[in-house]
């Protein structure tokens, strides 16, 4: 077979530089989970639909299940473990808990990464926009009520111009 069948890649994961040999076919998700032991990122569908495996690559949410680890050579990746001390994630975690935004917890890591992106990128988002932005993160337990309410609450708390209820 022409081309490389094992590559050594260097990735910054949660602020630490790691260097590992990987097979090209290894997904970023499997690399994070199996090679680095970062099992906070769960696999739900392995074809990019459910959103459970969503992580940040170079600051933007991405599906780790359909992204090859080798394609992340030189990139910076942040997983739910890497959000441990992030103040925005901390606000979201508190809101998720207060609004009962999780039940079995399997989708939660991906939800938090997406939720953080919504809060940072779309500070003016209303409930309808939050729902559209969540369309790529499936939850089978909550019916999304708690997730939507939690994100809307964090957006409201961070807004310099709090919305007035009619």
């Amino acid at each position: 077979m022409a081309g490389k069948t094992t590559l050594t890649i260097g990735i910054e994961v949660n602020g630490e530089q790691v260097t590992h040999a990987v097979e090209p076919r290894t997904s970023l998700a499997d690399f994070l989970r199996d090679t680095l032991g970062l099992t906070g990122t769960n696999l739900g569908c392995e074809h990019g639909v459910c959103g459970a495996c969503t992580v940040e690559i170079d600051g933007a949410p991405a599906r780790s299940c359909i992204t090859l680890a080798v394609a992340c050579d030189g990139a910076s990746v942040r997983t739910t473990e890497g959000l441990a001390d992030d103040p925005v994630a901390e606000e979201l975690r508190a809101a998720f808990k207060a609004h009962h935004a999780l039940q079995c917890g399997y989708c939660t890591s991906g939800m938090l990464v997406t939720a953080r992106d919504i809060v940072m990128r779309l500070p003016e988002a209303d409930e309808a926009r939050v729902r559209v932005e969540l369309a790529g993160n499936l939850c089978r337990c909550t019916g999304y009520m708690g997730v939507v309410n939690a994100i809307v609450a964090v957006l409201a708390a961070r807004s310099p111009h709090p919305r007035q209820d009619p």
């Binding site: 989970r33 099992t39 990122t41 769960n42 997983t79 998720f96 808990k97 207060a98 399997y106």
Partner: peptide, 21 residues
């Protein structure tokens, strides 16, 4: 009452079978 079990899931510490090494 907010749930006691939330803390581990919110920090990626849920121990699903596939996460056991």
């Amino acid at each position: 009452l907010p749930r006691k079990e939330d803390n581990r899931f919110l920090r990626g510490k849920g121990q699903y079978v596939a996460n056991i090494r």
